[in-house]
């Protein structure tokens, strides 16, 4: 399988992989290289790049470079945790629903239908209204939004596998449900499930960034790429770099995650064109 994966990486996908690794590195290690603290003004607000300030200053006179180096952790970290959470719960739910096919299945499906009939961002906004704009709320909210999608995919894949001969042979042998799920079903659904990860992670990033952009997630003076863009909108003409740099970073992150995820899915023989990038 590893050979197939590496073989399927087109030049484009390799570029994507390199970019992705770089940005993750930048986000994680960035703060170690920041020349200035993230909330200390170092000069006149909204000045263009000059000596000592590679990308100029923001609307409060803080160093854009430093704030950008600090600003990746939140997006990546929160989106990452939310995605992991969504997968952990979503997989468990999907496996149970798909395999047991008891009352649990239609119940879960109706529940996920309801969740999917509501725009995700709206859901997050409602949650923020009720529970405040903390990191915990953001993570749980994004995870909750993605869970039904993951559960759906896992459930469908589980259903498909559970009618195959070798699964029935195991059932006929009297093997218990946990053993059957673990040995027979799980190894065979990993393909379609992991093919989806790229899209899910991209979406988590987009959601977290959007909420931060709306000023309803992380609050000032925190540094977050989306928040930086949002709070500096008015100063666009004076120092475009304050918008351009974080925007370019977010764009590169999401595009590279998507490209790599797409290539990964393609190596498993699954097309991602049909997957909905739910907004």
């Amino acid at each position: 399988m590893k050979q197939r994966l590496l073989g399927a990486l087109t030049p484009g996908a390799w570029v994507g992989l390199v970019v992705l690794v770089s940005i993750i590195g930048l986000a994680v290690l960035g703060p170690l290289f920041a020349p200035h603290p993230l909330d200390e003004p170092i000069g006149v607000p909204l000045t263009r790049p000059a000596q000592g300030a590679l990308f100029g200053t923001d609307f409060l006179g803080r160093d854009v470079l430093s704030r950008t180096l600090w600003g990746g952790r939140s997006v990546l970290g929160l989106a990452g945790i939310a995605t992991v959470l969504a997968y952990s719960v979503g997989m468990a739910v999907g496996l149970v629903a798909g395999y047991s096919r008891s009352l649990l299945d239609p119940l879960l499906m109706r529940a996920s239908d309801v969740m999917l009939s509501f725009p995700a961002l709206l859901f997050l906004l409602v949650l923020v209204t009720g529970a405040g704009s903390s990191k915990t709320v953001l993570v749980i909210g994004v995870a909750l939004v993605q869970m039904p999608l993951v559960a759906r995919i896992v459930r469908t894949a589980t259903l498909e596998q559970s009618v195959r001969g070798f699964v029935e042979a195991a059932v006929a042998r009297g093997e218990g449900a946990p053993a059957v799920v673990r040995r027979e079903i799980l190894p065979n659904i990993l393909g379609p499930v992991t093919a989806d990860i790229g899209l899910r992670f991209t979406y988590s990033i987009i959601l977290v960034a959007s909420v931060n952009f709306l000023g309803l997630g992380l609050q000032p003076p925190e540094a977050d790429w989306a928040l930086i863009i949002s709070e500096n909108r008015a100063g666009l003409t004076l120092n475009p770099y304050v918008i351009l740099v974080p925007a370019a970073l977010i764009a590169s992150l999401t595009i590279s995650v998507n490209v790599v995820g797409d290539a990964f899915a393609r190596s498993l023989g699954i097309s991602t064109a049909r997957r909905r990038l739910v907004r």
């Binding site: 001969g165 070798f166 040995r183 027979e184």
Partner: peptide
């Protein structure tokens, strides 16, 4: 029991 479809009878 042995099933019909040779593609499906084995994991």
């Amino acid at each position: 029991i042995v099933f019909q479809n040779p593609n499906e009878s084995l994991n």
